[in-house]
Simulated scan of single mutants.
Amino acid sequence: MAESTKFPIALFNGTVATTNGLYKISDISTNEAKALIREHGHISAIGHEATAEVMSEILEAKIEMNRIQFQQEVGQKAIVLKLNVRPAEGVILSRQEIEAIGYCFKLMERLA
């Protein structure tokens, strides 16, 4: 397996497999997420401004909205902001709506 230390931590606004592979998804605390970003840096694949704002504040890092086509590498870790409720189709949530719905962080690792 590739060393995760050579990759920046990817940031997603959903647990989406970006390419074929084997993935592991687990809970991660805010403090653990902050430590990973401090240690490895990050690359944002956050597609919504409100999500970028929430993540910036909570993770204490400048996180930009960045609608890119991203492909997670084998050995690369990603931090995902996962909403507690799936919004209706086509709905773009405000920061206040994200806070009201609630969310958790997940660690998504591509194993193979």
Results as ranks from 00 to 15, higher is better:
residue 2 A to P: 09
residue 2 A to T: 14
residue 3 E to Q: 09
residue 3 E to K: 10
residue 3 E to G: 06
residue 5 T to S: 14
residue 6 K to A: 13
residue 7 F to V: 02
residue 7 F to G: 01
residue 8 P to F: 07
residue 8 P to S: 08
residue 10 A to K: 00
residue 12 F to M: 03
residue 13 N to H: 06
residue 13 N to A: 09
residue 14 G to Q: 07
residue 15 T to A: 13
residue 15 T to S: 09
residue 15 T to Q: 08
residue 16 V to W: 12
residue 16 V to Q: 10
residue 17 A to N: 13
residue 19 T to M: 08
residue 28 I to M: 07
residue 30 T to M: 11
residue 33 A to Y: 02
residue 34 K to D: 15
residue 34 K to C: 15
residue 34 K to R: 15
residue 35 A to Q: 12
residue 35 A to I: 14
residue 35 A to F: 15
residue 41 G to T: 15
residue 42 H to C: 09
residue 45 A to I: 01
residue 47 G to R: 05
residue 48 H to I: 05
residue 48 H to E: 05
residue 48 H to V: 03
residue 49 E to R: 11
residue 49 E to N: 12
residue 50 A to G: 08
residue 50 A to F: 05
residue 51 T to G: 01
residue 52 A to Q: 00
residue 52 A to L: 03
residue 53 E to N: 11
residue 54 V to I: 10
residue 57 E to G: 14
residue 57 E to K: 13
residue 58 I to A: 14
residue 58 I to W: 06
residue 61 A to K: 11
residue 61 A to Y: 10
residue 63 I to H: 03
residue 65 M to D: 08
residue 65 M to H: 06
residue 66 N to W: 07
residue 72 Q to P: 00
residue 75 G to F: 00
residue 75 G to Q: 00
residue 76 Q to R: 01
residue 77 K to V: 03
residue 79 I to F: 02
residue 79 I to G: 01
residue 80 V to R: 00
residue 81 L to E: 01
residue 83 L to R: 04
residue 83 L to A: 13
residue 84 N to I: 14
residue 86 R to K: 15
residue 86 R to S: 14
residue 88 A to M: 13
residue 88 A to G: 15
residue 89 E to Y: 12
residue 89 E to R: 10
residue 90 G to K: 07
residue 91 V to Q: 12
residue 91 V to A: 15
residue 91 V to Y: 08
residue 93 L to K: 05
residue 95 R to K: 11
residue 97 E to C: 11
residue 99 E to A: 02
residue 102 G to I: 11
residue 102 G to P: 11
residue 103 Y to R: 07
residue 103 Y to G: 06
residue 106 K to A: 07
residue 106 K to Q: 12
residue 106 K to V: 06
residue 107 L to N: 04
residue 109 E to S: 02
residue 111 L to S: 07
